[in-house]
């Protein structure tokens, strides 16, 4: 184990924010879910006792009759904001005094950095370049991520869980978001930062970054493995495989989406357009893990080869 190597990556000034992120995301996941489970217990009690549901204030926060529902913004909110501003300024000051922003040598087009890495928040996209061609990883998928995020409110027909933490009432939505945000996006950022070394080669944490390492990866295309040689055959075969993948994934998504009676009730509220959109974005999202497995475990470069594009 090369601990020095790991320490050097971790303490690289530009990587400190991602270390912070790795600490902060689990904390806030726990912090949010803790409130969600507390609300879920309250929901269980209210559902078991309809009389209580009529009179209860329906929050986990303390409440006594006679308490005002609202408080004045000055001082109760503004003092919080002021305090937070002071704390953030203090943290920034300490951070800026103790850690210097990186500055490398002057830009030199004839001296390539290896590895040449994007800022950490874009390393998810750079890591996607391993699994997809640049037009897909750099343009189409980022666009779909943004559009997919934007249409979330219009696809989610579940009226429950509006304005309070809950897990029980929004299981599918929460799992889907956790999968996309934490399992895919954040883990790709972490892989891009800690795992990828010179030549964008996979180095396990603690493995020395060997700048002379060469890997003769015998990457192959899926049609070649089946002995298909003609371009027409490859195109049709790839289309069939991708189509089959989409179908199987869509069926899996449907199965999960209509898992129990409540989920089916939400499903019945959806319009056809909403459901098709949901399936499209989730199936597209699942392309990434599928391609990761194909590439990392089976060394498959392309599944679908055509004269115009390869996937």
């Amino acid at each position: 184990m090369d601990w020095v190597q790991l320490w050097e990556i971790t303490t690289l000034p530009d990587n400190v924010p991602i270390v912070l992120l790795i600490l902060v995301i689990p904390f806030y996941t726990w912090y949010g879910l803790r409130q969600a489970f507390a609300n879920d217990r309250l929901i269980d009690r209210l559902e078991a006792d309809p009389e209580m549901a009529k009179t209860h204030h329906r929050k986990t926060q303390p409440w006594k009759p006679g308490w005002a529902r609202e408080v004045q913004v000055w001082p109760y909110l503004l003092r919080m904001e002021f305090l937070v501003a002071i704390i953030v300024t203090f943290i920034l000051m300490v951070w800026s005094i103790t850690l210097d922003a990186p500055l490398e040598e002057p830009a030199n087009p004839s001296l390539t950095m290896n590895p040449a890495k994007a800022p950490w928040y874009f390393l998810g996209l750079q890591e996607m370049l391993v699994y997809f061609d640049p037009w897909m990883a750099g343009v189409v998928l980022p666009t779909l991520i943004l559009v997919g995020l934007m249409v979330i409110p219009y696809m989610d027909t579940n009226p429950l869980g509006n304005g309070y933490y809950t897990y029980k009432q929004r299981k599918f939505a929460i799992w889907a978001f956790f999968f996309g945000f934490i399992v895919l996006w954040l883990s790709m950022v972490v892989i891009g930062t800690f795992i990828r070394g010179p030549g964008w080669i996979w180095f396990w944490p603690g493995q020395t970054w060997d700048h002379n390492k060469l890997i003769f990866e015998a990457n192959r295309d899926l049609p070649d493995m089946f002995g298909i040689t003609s371009m027409l055959g490859k195109s049709l075969f790839g289309a069939a495989v991708v189509g089959l993948f989409a179908l199987v994934t869509a069926l899996g998504v449907h199965k999960l989406f209509t898992w129990n009676a409540f989920n089916r009730k939400i499903y019945n509220r959806m319009s056809l357009i909403q459901y098709v959109l949901l399936q499209f974005f989730l199936v597209t999202m699942m392309l990434l893990p599928a391609k990761m497995v194909a590439r990392l475990l089976f060394r498959i470069k392309y599944v679908w080869v055509t004269p115009w594009f390869n996937i």
Binding site: E105, A107, N108, P109, T112, K117, A118, F122, Q126, A137
Partner: peptide, 21 residues
């Protein structure tokens, strides 16, 4: 800052734009 870090990060980033459909 016009240093190696920024130069290559932006080179990598904008190279993706070559591949825009």
């Amino acid at each position: 800052p016009d240093d190696q870090l920024g130069f290559w990060a932006v080179t990598v980033g904008t190279n993706m734009a070559r591949a825009t459909p």
